[in-house]
Write a protein that binds this DNA or RNA. Structure first.
Lengths: 346, 346
DNA sequence: GGTCAGGCGGAGAGCGCTCTCCGCAGCCGT
DNA sequence: ACGGCTGCGGAGAGCGCTCTCCGCCTGACC
């Protein structure tokens, strides 16, 4: 259309072509106040003729809005030297969240910027950057239980929404899934399938989501008259599921059902069971959690508790956008209901 | 530190506190020209005292740089109604690329903004946005063979680097892995393992990476005196690997080795083999491609051709950054060498 | 001692946009 | 018929920064 480094058309150019003032063009473009319909059309024609696109920086400068939301991934564990290669990115979890966020942000014309923060001093800088126009608000994805980042963001008065319940209460909105009810679904299902000796492979005991799943599962089991549930902890990785399953079987060789706190670990558990020649689901039933792509990739395909991550992320984005528009909005929390997806392992 | 909507400190504030002019503070902050070392320190003290952070929008406005790179994911297949939920995001591929990009961008203080473009009219708008200060350049991840986006970006004179060889030559730099040599590695390995009846499960026949893997594999096999290689095409999904493996075995029941064009399909193939009671690797050996997390999750763990995706993405980011700094730079292409990772399936 | 070069810091003009303020019509009410 | 109100569009002041231009001061050289 235009050549390489031709100056891009500005509002002024459009105004001149349309024979109106800059202010009028601005009004038309932003749909503000009633502008004479004829002029309206003249202006739009001029916009199209010039190929005008508003300069984001100039607009930001005066509106004090960037039209950008930051996805802040707080990965405070270890990886300080190289936090980017952390296993998190290869976890399907990340992609689902990004997809969900974009689906809500895109219609609003808002960009998504990725921020990964590792070490603590990076946190301070991040907050400074955030304050000073990096983004209008943040979606915080905290992987670390004792993470200070949500608190820092709240303290700075920055709009923010946390995905997943923060370990400590924080004056920020959050979205979450009812982990406890999801785990209860799994418990009820295993019991309904006639399983008598049921165990659990848990996530890390300091992560809220994991804690809730444990609590939900054990209390549901208690309701079914099983006060003791053998459990071994993993760390949500495939490999740790493998390890935990072996350990669980060593102590409880006669297990006929197991609830695994996420699909990745369930996949690991499944391969151990197969290796040991335990028929699934005939000899032992397995229920996972997440309904990630791993559930479908597993053989047999995994019965699992679905966490509507895309919807949760989209809702988080909408909450954030609303908060950015009206900072006086009070913080809210939305809890999504999990559903049981029955496949071949139960 | 400061309260909610206190005006953030500006250059002017810092200058006043330091007793110098705005220009001097700007020079110190940007490390330009030799400023008197004493003043230098005075200015930095004032910066720290005020907690000053440069306003990105204001800076962009004058420098015509945004300090942002866009990751443009061009997903032109079907998903127009809802391109965000496309399977792509749950593919570990995406996360590895993001991680690699961030590792190169972060040290340069450059942000990563995500852009997903579906329909064609969205492309035109994207290019407009890109021109007008959304980003200084783009990393293009094209999932669609006949994609026009790289060409559009090149035509607009925008800096851009493509990950993966574009289907049609385009005046843009790109990074890629030597898909043909990777496939040859797999062929050599299967032959060295003494396999006689070797087949292949390919990717879509219109995707460059897939084409190269097919060409590399068949020509390497030809060098080993096998001019005919039975092959079935999949589409890089787990499920298609399942289907393709069944089909391949139907026509070639005595297969004792198979090269699968990516790990996800290999995982699918593996579960079919197990279901059919074919021992891996004793009766049939399997080699994948990518070395994604799926390779480790597979049972037995998958022998695969490693594609250094993180390094490739990081290199793409560096190429782009260099191009942004100096637009006169000519386009280059960097091809990474794949390596064979031998695990338990061969 | 005079001149000139060079280094350093200040003044101030903009970058492209939004938005307030104001003026000018046209129309209503009395 | 006249004042005031309302609706619409223009003028122009910034938003916070960078960077050019210029002036001052110091030091070196003749």
């Amino acid at each position: 259309m235009t050549t390489d480094n031709a100056r891009l058309p500005t509002l002024e150019d459009v105004a001149r072509l349309a024979g109106v003032s800059r202010a009028t063009v601005s009004r038309v473009i932003n749909g503000i106040r009633n502008v004479n319909p004829e002029l309206h059309e003249v202006v739009w024609n001029a916009v199209n003729a010039t190929g005008y696109v508003a300069n984001r920086a100039a607009r930001s400068l005066v509106t004090r809005r960037t039209g950008t939301i930051a996805l802040v991934v707080s990965d405070s564990e270890s990886h300080d030297d190289d936090p980017f290669m952390s296993r998190f990115f290869s976890d399907p979890f990340f992609g689902r969240v990004v997809g969900g966020l974009l689906s809500a942000l895109r219609p609003a014309g808002v960009q998504l910027a990725l921020q990964i923060v590792g070490a603590d001093q990076a946190r301070a800088r991040l907050v400074g950057d955030l304050r000073q126009g990096q983004a209008d608000g943040s979606i915080v994805l905290s992987l670390h239980p004792g993470d200070t980042l949500p608190q820092l963001i709240a303290d700075a008065g920055l709009p923010g929404v946390v995905i997943g319940r923060p370990a400590r209460p924080v004056p920020l909105s959050h979205v979450d899934v009812a982990n406890d009810r999801g785990a209860a679904l799994a418990a009820d299902h295993l019991v309904a399938r006639g399983r008598r000796r049921i165990g659990m492979i848990t996530g890390p005991v300091d992560v809220p989501a994991s804690v809730d799943r444990i609590a939900g599962f054990t209390s549901a089991m208690a309701r079914h008259g099983r006060s003791y549930v053998p459990a071994v902890a993993g760390n949500f990785t495939h490999e740790s599921g493998d390890r935990a399953m072996r350990e669980l079987l060593t102590d409880n060789p006669d297990l006929d059902g197991v609830f695994v706190a996420n699909d990745l670990m369930a996949q690991g558990a499944l391969s151990v069971l197969q290796e040991l020649g335990r028929a699934v689901p005939d000899e032992i039933a397995v229920v996972g959690f997440d309904d990630s792509s791993a559930a479908l990739a597993a053989r047999p395909q995994l019965t699992t508790v679905r966490q509507p991550l895309e919807d949760m992320a989209a809702e988080a984005a909408r909450l954030l956008l609303a908060r950015v528009d009206d900072p006086s909005l009070s913080t809210t929390s939305i809890v999504f209901e999990p559903t049981l997806i029955v496949r071949a392992t139960t």
